[in-house]
Design a protein around this nucleic acid. Sequence first.
DNA 1: AACGGCTGGGTAATCCATTACCCGCCCGCT
DNA 2: AGCGGGCGGGTAATGGATTACCCAGCCGTT
Lengths: 331, 331
Amino acid sequence: MATISEVAAKAGVSTATVSRALNGKSTVDPDLVLRVRRAAEELGYQPNGPARNLRRQEAAVVALIISDVENPFFTAIARGVEDVAHEVGYSVVLCNSDENAEKENRYIDVALQERVAGVILSPSGPTTSVEKLTKRGTAFVAVDRPLPGQSSDVVLVDTRLAAREATAHLIDQGYQRIGCITGPAGVRTADDRLAGYRDALKSRRLRSTTKLVRRTEYKAAGAHRAAQELLDQAEPPDALLVANSAMAVGVLQALQEHGIRPGKQVGIVAFDDAPWAELVDPPLTVVAQPAYEIGTVAARLLLARIGDNTRPTTTTTLAARLIERGSSHRG
Amino acid sequence: MATISEVAAKAGVSTATVSRALNGKSTVDPDLVLRVRRAAEELGYQPNGPARNLRRQEAAVVALIISDVENPFFTAIARGVEDVAHEVGYSVVLCNSDENAEKENRYIDVALQERVAGVILSPSGPTTSVEKLTKRGTAFVAVDRPLPGQSSDVVLVDTRLAAREATAHLIDQGYQRIGCITGPAGVRTADDRLAGYRDALKSRRLRSTTKLVRRTEYKAAGAHRAAQELLDQAEPPDALLVANSAMAVGVLQALQEHGIRPGKQVGIVAFDDAPWAELVDPPLTVVAQPAYEIGTVAARLLLARIGDNTRPTTTTTLAARLIERGSSHRG
DNA sequence: AACGGCTGGGTAATCCATTACCCGCCCGCT
DNA sequence: AGCGGGCGGGTAATGGATTACCCAGCCGTT
């Protein structure tokens, strides 16, 4: 692998000139630039990233640590982050924490060690700590979930309100015993969706009971079990608020196994507008979250903070949108 | 941010000893190890990755360049790669090439610049070149699609055979005018699926006509249009082989819009066993690909090659599995 | 003509962890 | 006692790009 000095030798200039010519940071004789370019080309010169990053004390890379690569909500965020970051020459590396605090921590360490310019993180739980990042002064933005007790830029969806509206919608449709299947306690979005659900029941003077609430991991399997349990009760729910699309898969499966068609007997509203939501019968009523936009906003905030880490922290709250389809209509 | 010399000063030893104590590469007095550890701890020392990588001439990172982060097939591969890589202390960075040769190239450059230990790539098309990687001697494995004209380790699914079997299954079910919606020309999996489809028609002495074949990008929108066109023909197909799950969404939508229920009137088999395949009515017959396994196999091959780049290249072909459900039955 | 200012480009310091090389000490053997 | 071998640990070279600093030359001004 060619180094900068080989390029310099071939072009008959100093390494400093090569660097300046290739990075365009300073004025260099156009003739020399050409000679340097040609030499670099011929040698297949690729600057040594570690050397550059060592010198610059920072890599033009942002790390995006998400809790589940297989969740379309997060991959849509990733796409948003990428689109913005690439525009300004940053690379994005995607790290999958698997809702696992230990893996998350490990990735934070890696990000720190590699001296990335910034980190965007969806905190896996209440124990998440980005203290290490802030201590070192690494730019940081939280997405989807705020960071417990810390101040940082954060991009959220007003998920509590969305859950409230979704639940109110179910009530309006005449459902009476509405249940909720949400994510693990301590995961902020899961807590918020539950809280919004309770808000709605309360404001409509419906009794809220833990018998109609289940919490499991944000996956199909857990939601499947939860739905089974709820449906097998003496007094089963006549509607369910489901906290994400993977869970919706589990819930719809359970309904199928019980021979229950969504809508008429059991109303369903699920978070996240999956591409298949319109394909099931009846089509699934969903709370669509602006995932891509979360990504773009977060990336822009991060870039701003990379530029100036003293700027005041902000909280951006985006609205979710209820998309009514057949699964929440008795008709 | 603390450096190794600060740790050394604090522990009262040389930097060499700090490095040896923390990396455990050489025997160090246990007392000193303890002192060093404590000093590092107290200073919150994080080794400087770029410096380390510069010295070692390689980062303990593998890059995984996939063509679509939002495609569950690829995210499942990612998970497989991660699980294996993490076991041996490698980090995985995920890069999204978007089926875009230019982005792909750019990520290859980044991987090269950052001196990653290895690259796993799903080549976006016929123009993909990993020459740069092989020239520098970076370990490399291709997944899902072989690399045109180059020899490298590659992990594939026998997708042509799978397409043939899926088509044969449709024929066995009594469908007569079977169509095919596949990915862009030049994308190997798309070509292979089409070839397998034709193999089956031929071996059963059915005429194959381009009127029943459409090629579009591997996305819902393209497949939707393609299905519309096919269905609006004078002699529409009575069955469709669809080349991935995103496309299946588009196709099923089109059927809905035509008021056609899959199965009875138009049989459907789609590649990729999406979580929602059992939820649609009738449930979708699919060709399940062992995506996770592709990831684990590829990662193991890559690690072997990182260890010894002179080993002969191998081709691993995994079998796909047809899962018969309602959408391919006339009954 | 002399001098100040500006510009282009070279020299060498710098970033920090790893490791080749070397030294001193201790142990055991003859 | 003397010597060889082995081990722990220090010194300094190393990796490669960037950039502070400096110098030479050219222009314009007085």
